[in-house]
Design a binder for these strands. Structure first.
Lengths: 251, 251
DNA sequence: ATTGTTGATTTTGTCGGACATTATGTGCAA
DNA sequence: TTGCACATAATGTCCGACAAAATCAACAAT
């Protein structure tokens, strides 16, 4: 055992990390978790590494230990950290089976981009199939509107991803099962965080936008086969782009 | 608004619920959550209902408020409860987009059995496809062993579901992407909890067991089309059984 | 009579302190 | 060198107090 190369051992002479951002008094538990995330990033902590004792974190962030514990409890319930009496709080070696928090899980395993995409893919295709089958006329109208808005933005040189988000959310709405939207958006959120952090967020999926109008039409017409085929093609393109980005990064 | 029929208003004259089980001193946070679950069940609380103030819970369970808060924080981070200053802690009306905990979510919405099955279905099929494509020889051997064990147990009149679990876990292992296993098992866990509680757990999926040996063979042979077809058929049968159970329950 | 306002109350949020519990490590003795 | 007792450091738990905020009740104003 004898864990290797722990960078933050005794170099912190009670005032080393004091330059950290002190949280304002009205900060939520989410802010604490964000600050902890930044701290983990900055100090380059990996799976199994210890993070500072609760009292130190509290002092460095200018908050009470109760608040730190609340945040760590949240992470613990997600299986992100493991707490032990004297061993301190460590980043979890493996995620508990019954608890998932994709954003952090993925952040800890950056190579899992393709894995995450592989999970997202069947969910997206099935959501499109159900949307084509179950859409109401209102849903079809919303989807048509969203795709026209998307193409309008796409024509200009502004960021088209918010419009793309709205379009896909309309699909999740139309499929009649809120679990699809919840799961996919959870996956997407984790994807974005890990993707935009180290790779500088190139506009992924740009090539797929021209396929969106026929997808919307297929859903509106109730053409399940064509809709799922188009969605699968879109996701294939995205997957190829991911592989390309990963390869160019590995140079 | 004016929420209706809150059963636990002022009938508790400081000593009503005192007969609750007092937790032993060495109880974990999980125990507290279990006790809270039982309390919710016993008092018949629904979505939007308030649960007792933290100090009351602490007194009734014989623990400190810190322990109660830790447990509630865990639930809050899963989107199960919402906490407000004077409004108290309420069971969440809708699950936050970035936090999902299917077991409790489903327990609160029993009608979502089919929705959950609809999400599980494409994931299972894709996992089988990937397993047929990427399985190693060892994986194939394990799957073959598991299915033979399953059929052996199935022949006797003991409970075949543990063996069934092992078989499907072997598939998740073989597919080469741990996220599939994590997500599906999370979904399954929630499904079981909500299913077995109100419906008395009939042996769901009994009809599908004879389809498992050919499924295992298709995976071992790398026959993606046949494997996915069989898995889809299995899940169709399960879905039909779910519908039947729900209908007979609605009489 | 309805509406707006003000104030009291209740409940969660946060802090600090104290002690218990438990790994971890250290030093002494065999 | 090995084994054991003890010191130490970190989380776990409880308590008490106050802050903050949402709700409710009473009251005033239109």
């Amino acid at each position: 055992m004898t864990q290797p190369t722990n960078p933050n051992q005794q170099t912190q002479t009670q005032a080393a990390g004091e330059t950290l951002a002190i949280l304002p008094p009205g900060s939520t538990s989410r802010d604490v978790l964000d600050a902890l995330s930044r701290m983990i990033d900055r100090e380059g902590l990996r799976i199994g590494d210890r993070l500072p004792p609760e009292v130190d974190i509290a002092r460095r962030l200018g908050i009470g230990r109760a608040k730190v514990r609340e945040a760590l409890t949240s992470w613990q319930s997600m299986g992100i950290v493991v707490r032990n009496k004297k061993a301190g709080t460590r980043l979890a070696a493996e995620v508990a089976a019954n608890a998932i928090h994709l954003p952090v899980t993925m952040k800890l395993e950056a190579e899992s981009l393709l894995r995450t995409h592989a999970v997202r893919r069947p969910l997206e295709v099935e959501a499109v199939r159900l949307a084509a089958r179950n859409r109401s006329p209102q849903d079809a109208a919303i989807i048509t509107t969203r795709v026209s808005e998307l193409m309008q933005v796409y024509g200009s040189n502004t960021d088209w991803r918010p419009a793309d988000d709205l379009f896909h959310r309309a699909i999740y709405e139309a499929c009649g099962n809120p679990l699809f939207g919840q799961l996919i958006q959870q996956i997407q959120q984790g994807f974005k965080e890990v993707y935009e952090a180290p790779l500088g967020k190139p506009h992924l999926g740009h090539e797929t936008i021209p396929l969106h109008p026929p997808l919307a039409q297929a859903i509106a017409e109730g053409n399940e086969a064509e809709a799922t085929r188009l969605m699968d093609e879109i996701l294939s393109i995205v997957e190829a782009e991911i592989r390309q980005v990963l390869e160019t990064k590995n140079d």
